[in-house]
């Protein structure tokens, strides 16, 4: 197994983890973290492509590196926007959740305990 294949497989695993987290977790913060994990996988794919272009005798294919830095900036801005929205929602409601009903799972045992 050569290096590009290894890194490609790593990228696939990262994208898979990220996608799983993004779909399964209801909490927005975890969703944003999963998005970043998935993003790392996608960026790794790009880096592998740059490295593979270098096999033609160049030091490295510069175009994917330029794309990569742009994509990282965009993903960073997206995460910042998401966190800002979450903080504002927390200020307004005291919780940060994407489900419409106010957390049925933790609320019920608490209600039983009080009763």
């Amino acid at each position: 197994m050569n290096a590009p294949t290894l890194f490609g497989l790593c990228a696939a695993v990262l994208v898979g983890f990220g996608l799983y987290g993004l779909i399964v977790h209801p909490q927005p913060l975890r969703k944003v973290l999963s998005f970043n994990l998935m993003g790392s996988g996608v960026f790794l794919v790009c880096a592998v492509i740059a490295r593979r272009g270098a096999a033609a005798g160049m030091g490295g294919d510069p175009v994917p590196q330029a794309l990569l830095i742009t994509a990282i900036v965009v993903a960073f801005a997206a995460s910042a926007l998401a966190v800002a929205l979450m903080l504002r929602q927390f200020d307004e409601t005291g919780s940060s959740s994407l489900s419409n009903d106010p957390g049925p799972a933790p609320a019920k045992p608490a209600a039983k305990g009080e009763a």
């Binding site: 993004l22 927005p28 969703k31 997206a78 998401a82």
Partner: peptide, 9 residues
């Protein structure tokens, strides 16, 4: 805010 966050995700 919640709708915006969901849209963003």
């Amino acid at each position: 805010l919640q709708a915006a966050l969901r849209y963003l995700v």
